[in-house]
Amino acid sequence: MEHGKEDVASKEYAVLMEHDPVSRLKTQHRSLRRQMCLIQFMTVFLCISCCLFTLMYQPYASSCKENEIKKAPEIGMQRQAPESDSREDITLGQSPTRFTRLTIKQKPGVSGAGNVTWILKSPEPDHKEYFTLDNDCESLKVHRDGTYKVSLQITYRGLEGYIGDGEQSQHGILHHEIHHYTDSYPRVPPLLTYMETVNFKSPYWKKTLFSEGIFSLNTGDRLKVWSSHLILIDVGEKVEQKTFFVAYPHFFS
């Protein structure tokens, strides 16, 4: 009998030993769930707090910005007020751009290729500070180092019976360039080049070729315009609107 009681007691102990790990796992699981719930609660609480803080701070922030916007012009006006008269005087007293505008000088009987001759058209006051037209009426001389904008427009027109100098086909090429004479280069480099194909056998045509660019020029440099067909340059009415050579300062350091 005693032996049987011992067997029963050992079995109960074994059963208790088997259920103990399960209870521990349940306890750990419950503990983890409580921790997760606590973390979720804290997260939700922080989110709600941030939203409430944003809603409460937004009206205050907008009012601060409005105050800054209102104050800024007042400060600016106070600073500009003493100088308003002088600034207006400076704005009104600015002189127009000092440009040099040349138009073609008519030379009857000139044909073939060569340099275009010019006359000065409506010079601005003190225009000689930057450019002058030499006595040969071909060279535009630079009087000050700087960066200049140079524009050239030449209008050509057809002539009855003209087929070009030594050109066998009915099509020819109108070609003109601005040549840059300077001590900085041993040769004469072209600043601008323009070419256009036309039908010389038809007298009923006109071509206006316009080009411009910005260039660095030095004191003493000279600019000349060379054309392949001087005889075809239109020198009729309003010639100053058809053919012109313009230069003016673009930038100075």
Rank of each mutant, 00 (worst) to 15 (best):
T117Q: 13
T117H: 07
T117W: 01
T117M: 13
T117L: 04
I119L: 14
L120K: 07
L120T: 05
K121W: 14
K121E: 10
S122I: 01
S122D: 12
D126E: 12
D126F: 14
H127M: 06
H127C: 07
H127F: 15
K128W: 02
K128L: 06
E129K: 15
Y130P: 04
Y130A: 02
F131P: 03
L133G: 09
D134L: 14
D134W: 06
N135L: 15
D136A: 01
C137T: 07
E138Y: 00
E138I: 14
E138P: 01
E138K: 14
L140W: 03
L140P: 02
K141M: 14
H143G: 06
R144E: 15
R144H: 13
G146F: 13
G146R: 08
T147V: 15
T147K: 15
Y148F: 12
Y148W: 09
V150F: 02
L152A: 10
I154C: 01
T155H: 08
T155K: 12
T155Q: 15
R157Q: 14
R157E: 11
R157D: 06
G158V: 05
G158A: 13
L159T: 03
L159E: 12
E160H: 10
I163H: 06
I163D: 05
D165M: 06
D165G: 10
D165R: 08
D165W: 08
E167R: 14
E167C: 08
E167M: 11
E167L: 12
E167G: 01
Q168I: 13
S169F: 09
S169T: 13
Q170T: 13
Q170Y: 04
Q170G: 05
Q170F: 11
H171R: 11
H171C: 09
G172C: 15
I173W: 04
I173G: 02
L174R: 04
H175E: 09
H175S: 09
H176K: 01
E177Q: 09
E177R: 12
E177S: 11
E177H: 09
I178G: 05
I178F: 11
I178P: 03
H179A: 02
H179G: 03
H180C: 04
H180A: 04
H180K: 12
